[in-house]
Each structure stands twice: as C-alpha cells, then as structure tokens.
Amino acid sequence: MIPKLKRQQIMDLLSSGRRVDGRGLEDLRPVEIRCRSVKNAEGSAEVRLGKTLAIAGVKTSIGTPFADTPDMGVMIVNAEFLPIASPTFEPGPPDENAIELARVIDRGLRRAEMIDLKQLCIVPGKAVWEVWIDIHALNHDGNLMDASALAAVAAILTAEVPKAMVNEKGEVTINKSERQRLPIKSIPITVTMAKIGDKLVVDPNLDEEEVADAFLTATFVDDKVCAIQKRGERGLTAEETMKALQIARQKAHELLKTVREVVGGG
C-alpha cells in the first residue's frame, strides 16, 4: 500500500517536472569524490551521490595469467552490499544485486580498456599483476551502481602500485619503495536512468528506485557506449531506450569533468 501511495506522489510530482528531493528530471545529485583516504590500499576512493556513499579500494598482487591471455594482467571486480549501508542488506555472500553490479562495472571497465592489461604482464605466461577492485556500499540511498562505478574509476586513476622486477634467476621481486600509476587508456563513466511511468529520470534516489518500472545503466567511453544493462521488472520502448541513452550521454560528460577536476586530468 505504501509503495503505491509513494509511487502516486512521485508520479504526480514528475508530471509537473519535479522530483521528491527537489531536483529536475535530468539533474544529478551533488557528487563528491575523495581519493586516497585508505593508506593501506594502492588506490581508493569514496564517492558520495547525495546521501549514497560507496567506497572502492584497489589492491594488487602477483599471479599467473589466464591460459588464453598469457600476456595480460588480470582485473577482478567484486562488490559487497554491507548491512552497514541499509536496513534491508543482510550479511553473507554477495546476493544477485551485488553480483550484477560488480559484473556491470567490470564490463564497463573491461570494454573501455580503462586499465591497459597488456602493460601489467611481467613474465608472459608466468607472472602478471592482478588488480583487485573491491567496492563496498556504505550508505544506500539509491543508485549504488553509479556511485560504485565512479568510486572504482577514481580509485583506479589515483592508484599507485609497486614495481615488479625480474632478477637474473628469472624470479619476480616487488620493489615497494618505487611506485607508479596504473597504465590508463580511457575513463569510462557510468550513468543510470530510471523509468517511472512515462518519465525518465537520471540518478534515481532510493524512493524513486523503489517505485521505478525499469532502469537503464550505460557506461560511456568518449561518446560511445561500451556497456548497457537494463534492469527492473518492467519494459522500455525502443524510443525510451534511445532517449535514456541520449540523456545519460550528456550526464556522462558532466561526470567526466568532475572526475578530471578531482584526479587532475587522469
């Protein structure tokens, strides 16, 4: 009953061009990015999207490459929706929502080739860098997807990883005193749109998320799309899809500017 009333209220507001938190339909919530707050991590970033807070950490280790990509480093994205973040989150292994989020972000990073994995090869077929990207939700007020993606990107951009060297015996050693940035090829930006009734809104908050019909998450690299995920239990028309992508593309531009300001060009 309450969701029904809430949906009605949200839809009434939307029809007059407003949202429950006072934003316009195509406004992002205020974005705040804080990098390098975790000293023990090679890279880290806390991202606030309104009241939503997510933190991402980058850790690296030396491992063996996959058999089909002997000359490439390994990137692993994991996400946890901790009970600290919401009364509805429970402890335990990642549920389908956390797994989906991690996989959508992974696809965005991978397809944009954000990290040049070829440069993370130390000894082909034997030793490569493994880059672990762990995303943790800390406060869930809607759109954990974009907050997490942004945190992952900012953490990767500002990460400083140790140097690996191969000695005469062919053994791999790590020099922790000498650090360098990860090899970056592009900056992918993820934007989520929600469909509520016949309206499309950008960056849905929790109230909107609870009543939305469907979501479209898109990751942009330059002006192209490199990953899309439609979510939610209702459908979208092709026209709505194209319009959502068009709005999301503009928002990605805005967010990219913010990221560049914070990390200094990247």
Binding site: R111, D223, V225, I228, Q229, T237
Partner: peptide, 21 residues
C-alpha cells in the same frame, strides 16, 4: 513493443545501437 532485456558488452556508437535494436 516493450524491450524487457537489453545488455551490451562492447563498444557501439549511437547510430549503431539504434540499428542493432
């Protein structure tokens, strides 16, 4: 005429997406 699943893994420009759909 309702799309109920749409995923993309790979790079497409706006026109290409429209054509693919």
């Amino acid at each position: 005429n309702e799309i109920t699943l749409l995923q993309l893994d790979g790079i497409l420009g706006p026109e290409e997406i429209e054509k693919a759909i």
